[in-house]
Every structure is written in C-alpha cells, then in structure tokens.
Amino acid sequence: MAGESTQRMASEDLGRAKNAYERARFMRAISGTIPFSLVVAFAMIFGTRREIGLPLGVALLGLAAFSLHRGGLFGRAVLPGIVAGIFPLLLAFAARACGHVCMGDSCMSLCVPACSMGGLVAGAGLAWLGLRTKMAPTFFVAAFGFTLLTGALGCSCVGSAGVLGLFAGLVVPLLPALGIRRHA
C-alpha cells in the first residue's frame, strides 16, 4: 500500500516536472524570438511592403518560436539561419536605394543580382558552419528555411524574382554540403 502510494506520488511529481520543463522551454522560446522580431520590424520600417512583410514576419517568428521550443537541430538552426538571412536582406535594401542601373537603352533593378549574391554568401556561410560542426542534414534544411524567410523580407523588392534569386543563391552552396553530410 505504501509502495503504491509512493509510486503514485512519483508519477504525479514526474508529470509536474514534465509540465515545468515544457512551460520553461515555451517561455524561453517566446523570449528567444524577441530579438528576431527586431529584424522584422527593421525590414518593415526600411521598405518591405506591409502586405508582404507581415505574413513573412509572422511565419518567420512563429517557426522560430516553434523550433526553439522543440529544440534539437531545428532549435540550433534558428540563430545561424536568421543571421545568415540578414545579409541578403541588407543587400536588397542597398540595391533598392541604388535604384535602377541603366546601360544604353535598358535599365534594370539591382535587386535580383543583390539577392542572388546575398543568397550565395549566406548559403556558403551556413554550409561552412554545418560542415565544420558536423551537423545532420536536418540542420541544413531548417537553416535554409530561416535564411529564405529572413532574406525574403528584403528580396521581395521586385516580387518573386528577387526571392527566386535568393533561393538559387542559397541552394548552390547548400546542396553540396547537404550531400556531403548525408553520406558522412
């Protein structure tokens, strides 16, 4: 009888310990996304259209909170992914500030080349980090997602073309790195 009562108390205490653990992780995940909300706010202030910035920002912060709460490779991908995405974001804003470049009769926006270049550099950085720390393929995929969402805040400057440029730039260095880690 005493044994049963002790076991029941232990399993009740285990339940409470699990709840305390999850609650704390949840609160840390929410507070962990606060710095990233500054990135979204920065993007909205410096030019991202609201109809694009808001859904992208909500998706980015929601995924960040979820990944931080979940932990593991998803959680570890949040910070490097978003930091990497700031590079194409800033390049896109710089390109917008430059306006159009005209050669002869034709003019073009620098947004797409800036985003492709930004994606390339960001992807290379993530690939280097992932290979150096021997991360599993999930890390590369998750970090790619965060970089794309962050960069898209700026690279939507000429609509989907900028985002596609970013995507292409990211994929070029990340795919080989992903392949290496898959076969490691």
Partner: peptide
C-alpha cells in the same frame, strides 16, 4: 519533505538551461 522534493524537481527541470 514531500512538498520540498516536488518543488525541487520542478525547479530543476524548469531551470535545466
């Protein structure tokens, strides 16, 4: 002591970071 043990374990797992 039962209460203290329960509170301790809750705090341990809440502050594991």
């Amino acid at each position: 002591s039962e209460d203290a043990a329960q509170l301790t374990l809750e705090k341990v797992f809440a502050r594991i970071d």
